[in-house]
Amino acid sequence: MHIDEIKNGLVLDHIKAGKSMKIYNYLELDKLDCVVAIIKNVSSKKMGKKDIIKIDAEIEVDVDILGYIDPGITVDVIKDGKLVEKRHLELPEKVCNVIHCKNPRCITSTEQGLQQMFKLTDKANGIYRCIYCESKAKHGSLL
């Protein structure tokens, strides 16, 4: 199957096979009117199978969300058909309105207009805690 090379834009590579639609939704790529290709189950030496998303426009993606969802994803920046930058992601220190606190006793369950904020408290195990009630959301709970 052939998918056109992109000229100026981004390639999100090394997405776990089958997870590309989730990432498409979290990054709200449906709002773009440029060409977006979702390629599923591509053979990969490293991963066996992987997904790739190609975006044919120079946009800024929220690398914090992406890093939280899967720090193994790489972001390739393409300019004039050439790879000019390969960004490796990390777990972000804080994520805003990505994870929702499930603790019914947390103030986020009642207070209007309060942002859902989680902070990384244990990098080795990827554990995030609600900044208000300190309830745990294990990393990767979105996928």
């Binding site: 006793r105 103030i107 208000y132 009630c133």
Partner: peptide, 26 residues
């Protein structure tokens, strides 16, 4: 306050010092 984290929310919005006198089981 019965809700956990309410005093932190208070401290983000008040212009005077906040003392947490107990927030739920937190």
């Amino acid at each position: 306050h019965p809700k956990e984290g309410a005093p932190l929310v208070a401290s983000m919005n008040a212009t005077v010092p906040i003392i947490n006198a107990g927030d739920g089981g937190h």
